[in-house]
Structures are given as structure tokens and as C-alpha cells.
Write a protein that binds this DNA or RNA. Structure first.
Length: 268
DNA sequence: CATATGTCCTGAGAGC
DNA sequence: TGCTCTCAGGACATAT
């Protein structure tokens, strides 16, 4: 998502609109819309960063726009899937394309304008980015806990950036069962988890994300991602495990209210 | 402090 | 066919 909207770096925000539909509840936008617009219009987008699952527009001056897409939020440079769920339109000068759109079908996402203190509060509350960790840091941060490894991987206060799809995927790649308590993993298993985490996230980014059957996720150019074609277990309940082939089928359980997929044979 | 649960939201799909 | 119900899951508030 961040890479997709990178072309608008350097642009100046000419106008900012928050379209609203009578039928759809508005997105959480802080501060209020009026103050938000006043502080953003006229600013330049100096950089677009990412921290975990958050997209960060760094403006000249000291403010940052932080977009949390959560389940169904998108950042787009082209026409959105529907006009009804368009949440914000940044009209730009000095960049091509000339608009940055934020779209969110379910509206669970948030859009915040933060000063440096507020931004520091956010970065202090969530863990380091999962793709920017020194070796051994995954174990250092998750190890010694009694929670199941998959639940800990989803806790953004420990590591930021692993979501439900990729938690199942990386544990299958690492051959670690999702319910295993963190404090039961061996050093070898932690190494496998750490390697699989890097690998799965890097591949998912390379294939531009996972567009599931509901078709919600789109790239910045409103195209499908490709990583769903590489899923090993997610959403594949009852199908053959790609690792042990016909010997076992993928199982689905619920952990911390989230669908969890694994192969009981390969992930002991 | 660590962990568990409830809540928000809309649309797709199942089941009748 | 059209209705109701369940489910998807990210982060945070609240409870244990």
C-alpha cells in the first residue's frame, strides 16, 4: 500500500475533502474534519512511511497523517471500487496522479492527524516493525509468555505488522503449531519462526498483497493482489497440505476469535 | 502485569 | 425470490 501511493510524495495538498454518505456511518477522523483540513491543506507530503499496518504521510511542518486501514481500508491513486465508501480525497498539486483517495467499505479504519508528541505516543504504544528487527528479536519479544504463538504474533504491542492471514502462513512455513505456548518453543523453532516471518511478509509485499474471495483488498491502482495464489493454509480448510501433500488436510480452528489454519501433521 | 473478551462496521453468502 | 442470520478481523476499551 505504501509503495503503491509513493508517487504522490512531493505533492502539495491543494484541498482535502471528506465525502459522506447518508447510509454509511462516518469514519473515525481526529481531530474534527474542519481542524484536520485547516492543518493539512497547503502542506507538502514530504514522505510516506509505514509502521506495522499504519500508513504515515509526513507533512512539512511537524504534523503526520496516520491512516489505519484495518480490515477494508484502501489507499488509492485511481477510482475506488465504489463511490459510496470513499472516505477522504486529497487533491494534490505538483504530482501525477493528482489525487490520493482513502476508501473503506466497513469503516473500521481510522484517520488521524498527529503532532510530534501524539505520534511519539503511538510509536511508543506499538512494537517495532516486524520487517525491521535485529536477529533474535522475535524470540526476545514474544518468548517466555504463556500465550499461543499465533495469538502473540497478532499482538501489535509486541511486533507491529503481522495480521491474521500471515500469522497462519508463517507458522505453517516454520512448521510450528499455532497453539504452542511461546514459552514452549525451542531455539530452533524461534529461528524458524523468525525466518518464516521475514519470508512471508516479503513475499506478500512482492506479490502486492492478498485479495480474498470478497475482493475487498485492491492495490493503489485498484487491481487485485497476487499473494492469495500462494497461500499455503489460509482459507484452505479441508484441502491437501501443500507440504505433506495427500497425507493430511488443512484444519481450521478459532484462536482469540480469529480463524486459524494449519496442518496437524507438519506443525507438531 | 498478562491475558481474555466485547465492540465497532458493512456486505457476502448460507440457509430456509 | 427474498428474507434473516452469521461471519469476516484490526485495534482498543474494559474485564478477569
Amino acid at each position: 500500500m505504501r509503495r503503491g501511493i509513493a508517487p504522490v510524495v512531493g505533492a502539495r495538498v491543494r484541498a482535502l475533502r471528506f465525502p459522506r454518505s447518508r447510509r454509511i456511518k462516518p469514519l473515525t477522523i481526529t481531530p474534527g474534519r474542519r481542524a484536520f483540513q485547516r492543518r493539512v491543506v497547503g502542506r507538502r507530503i514530504e514522505a510516506i512511511d509505514r509502521l506495522g499496518k499504519r500508513i504515515i504521510l509526513v507533512l512539512n511542518g511537524s504534523d503526520r497523517v496516520v491512516f489505519e486501514p484495518r480490515m477494508t481500508g484502501l489507499a488509492l491513486l485511481t477510482d475506488p471500487p465504489t463511490t459510496e465508501h470513499l472516505r477522504a480525497r486529497f487533491e494534490l498539486a505538483g504530482a501525477e496522479p493528482s489525487e490520493l483517495l482513502l476508501w473503506d467499505r466497513r469503516g473500521l479504519g481510522t484517520l488521524r492527524l498527529l503532532d510530534p508528541d501524539e505520534f511519539a505516543e503511538v510509536t511508543g504504544r506499538i512494537g517495532p516493525d516486524a520487517l525491521d528487527l535485529p536477529r533474535g528479536e522475535v524470540r526476545a519479544r514474544l518468548g517466555g509468555r504463556r500465550r499461543p504463538i499465533k495469538v502473540a504474533l497478532l499482538d501489535q504491542a509486541l511486533l507491529a505488522g503481522v495480521g491474521n492471514i500471515y500469522a497462519s502462513e508463517l507458522l505453517h512455513m516454520a512448521r510450528v503449531h499455532p497453539t504452542r505456548p511461546c514459552d514452549a518453543l525451542s531455539a530452533r523453532e524461534w529461528t524458524a519462526v523468525e525466518r518464516a516471518l521475514q519470508r512471508v511478509l516479503a513475499d506478500a509485499i512482492r506479490y502486492e498483497g492478498s485479495t480474498l474471495n470478497d475482493g475487498t483488498y485492491r492495490t493503489a491502482l485498484n487491481e487485485e493482489g497476487g499473494y492469495q495464489n500462494h497461500h499455503r493454509v489460509y482459507g484452505r480448510e479441508g484441502r491437501a497440505c501443500p507440504r505433506c501433500k495427500g497425507r493430511h488436510t488443512v484444519e481450521r480452528i478459532v484462536l482469540a476469535q480469529r480463524a486459524t489454519f494449519f496442518c496437524a501433521r507438519c506443525q507438531a
